[in-house]
Design a protein around this nucleic acid. Structure first.
Lengths: 213, 213
DNA sequence: TGACAATGCGGACAATTGTCCGTAGACTAA
DNA sequence: TTAGTCTACGGACAATTGTCCGCATTGTCA
């Protein structure tokens, strides 16, 4: 068998966390083409392997399901988005009240979901379906969780908000930020991005502000 | 072929909406046995058909997936619960403020989810996975939705709460009442039913009460 | 350079889902 | 009773997922 381009799994370039694996790119390119041609739902793992010109074993060794392929397709923009979100939430505007920064972060996340709702939805479906996990355990939500929890805890310490359990509240917030709900609100109530943002802020910002009766 | 007990699909007893279909019960009994023996996850539709002693076609004609079988297994208790919930929300305690009745209803729903979390979770998974629908479109959530929307709208009319979009808010509330989140809160934060109820009420009752700054 | 170990590719295969259709039995009318 | 129609049963079959293992290729060491 000719194997001039044999993929090697081990070597990792530590500089950018990128595996030097020619198959990796071939798989993602194949997936991109098929997704574009037939839509996310109508593409099977088998056909992706075929399109990439590799065996199924080689495909499954790298991606256990379509969700992971979608994650990889989104990885760059997701990574950039989260890094920027963390930066904004922490360092910059450090003089703003924590609740104000939380509101900004929520708005950013809604923006991101709005842009990638369909892919995120599939990622989530595969993730919870195959891995017996909830969406909250997905790396993306985990990172957002850390950011939100930090901001909400700060807001609580500063007495900006009523007495709550930050962990519960953040999980509830993430639940409301699920792509599921976003797509449903658009479909069922023709809600715009602004409608949805407003609804979330009412519940999780205005609703938590400490007020007197 | 001997067919003394051939199932007939059409005849429906209008009195109790119950199909007179011997296969129906045989399938549910088979499923109950297998579920008990091997756990929800490890039972295939094929094995249920085998256990019931019928062909796969006959099984799929009645239940398109395991979620529907679970729904059927829960149907009686679900039906009773929803009927009671509707009764309480509407007629009785009609003099209570709507927001108070909403709080009661939420507590009831949390109770119900607490009792049936695992089955509900599987029903939901199958429902959203196979049917391209969101959990909000499931009959159970639809009926709860109607109840909650009515109560919230009443509360809004009576000026009990701040200005909100009842449809959005109820969907968000249902999202937070998802079995997913319930199981996750238990697993990740060792939350009790009371913790979770309290968290939800803080967001959706206290947070919406009209107050002045 | 040849022997031997390690890697990982690829496709055969088992398991499962969901569809489809030939056909047995039930029903109806003459 | 018979002929014709209809229902729906059951299992063959196609499609897909995920696993496993024989074997080719690469690397190592003498």
């Amino acid at each position: 068998m000719k194997k001039t381009e044999k993929a090697s799994l081990a070597p990792i370039d530590p500089a950018n966390q990128q595996t030097i694996d020619p198959y990796h790119e071939r798989i993602l390119n194949a997936a991109r083409e098929l997704f574009k041609a037939s839509g996310l739902e109508n593409v099977s793992m088998y056909s992706i392997a075929k399109q990439a010109g590799i065996g199924q074993g080689s495909l499954y060794r790298r991606f256990t399901d379509k969700g992971e392929i979608c994650s990889a397709l989104l990885r760059d923009s997701t990574g950039r988005f989260l890094t920027e979100l963390e930066r904004e939430a922490q360092s910059s505007n450090a003089d703003d009240p924590a609740l104000q920064r939380l509101q900004n972060s929520i708005e950013q996340v809604v923006d991101f979901i709005d842009q990638h709702a369909e892919l995120l939805h599939l990622i989530k479906s595969e993730f919870v379906g195959k891995k017996q996990l909830t969406q909250f355990e997905h790396p993306f939500f985990r990172r957002v969780n850390v950011i939100f929890t930090e901001l909400l805890s700060q807001a609580a310490e500063n007495g900006e908000i009523v007495n709550i359990d930050p962990h519960f509240t953040v999980t509830a917030l993430l639940s409301v930020l699920s792509p599921d709900l976003y797509l449903y609100q658009q479909k069922a109530h023709q809600s715009t991005k602004e409608d949805i943002t407003q609804g979330i802020l009412t519940l999780f910002i205005d609703g938590l502000v400490r007020k007197k009766r």
